[in-house]
Amino acid sequence: MRLSRPEAIVNYAVLGLFALISLIPIVGVVLTALTPADQATASFAIPRSLDFGNFVQAWNQGRFSQYMLSSVIVTVTTVVVAAVFSILAGFAFARMRFAGRNVLFYLMLIGMFIPLEAYIIPLYFEMRDVGLTDTYAALILPQIAQSVAFGIFWMRGFFAAIPSSLIEAARLDGAGDMRTLWQVLVPVVRPAVITMVMLTFMWTWNDFLLSLVMITSESFRTAPLALSFFQSQFVTQYALLSAAATIVALPLIILYAILQRYFIRGMLAGAIKE
């Protein structure tokens, strides 16, 4: 389709403007992070010389090496455990009949619909009573709970859509339930699993409220939480702050760059669903 010339120009201008608006903050923060600390200001500028010193400083003196490790431990554990449990339960809800199935399923749904804000306070006291506050468990356990609530729902839909013939065929080959599930069905729904893993990874990595409430000591502090503390401590050290912010965001940006299809598809599931 051809557009009239003036309209095409306006189109490009508007689209270009919004592309700029969406890009500038992100590019700007990376540039600031690469600016020598004494030249950096709040308004982004193209650095005259590149300086990776800010990253080194945030990583070492800023202890972001440690915070990133905490985030990795929490996120990876959560994602792996939640994925296994979600697949198991999602399969059962989709493919098995048992008393109380609906009740159990709706209870799981509650876990997904109720925002953390509703129960973060009792959750904190619950954790404190069993002496788990300020441990990785205080983050991992609730994160798994939230992730499986979503994961079961997600996986159940995909398992239910698999033609029964596939399962029958596997059974005829003598495969048990477990083998059918992991060796036949999971490969079939692999994209769905990847999407689920990406989403839970993102939610867990980016969590702030849970860490803010549960974690007090430095040794278990996750990267986003550390960044917010870092910010109130070094308000005006823009280069250092930007480097820290970049470090925290980087893992997801890389993942997104590689797996953007899964991200976008997952987050927009509704619209894409046939």
Binding site: L225, A249, I253
Partner: peptide, 24 residues
């Protein structure tokens, strides 16, 4: 779409400097 995957804390830090007195 990228801002969707970035932690809100990071986004907050970025915008604090955009809105700063001598910010962008």
């Amino acid at each position: 779409f990228l801002p969707q995957v970035i932690a809100a804390v990071v986004i907050g830090v970025i915008w604090v400097s955009i809105y700063a007195p001598d910010g962008l």
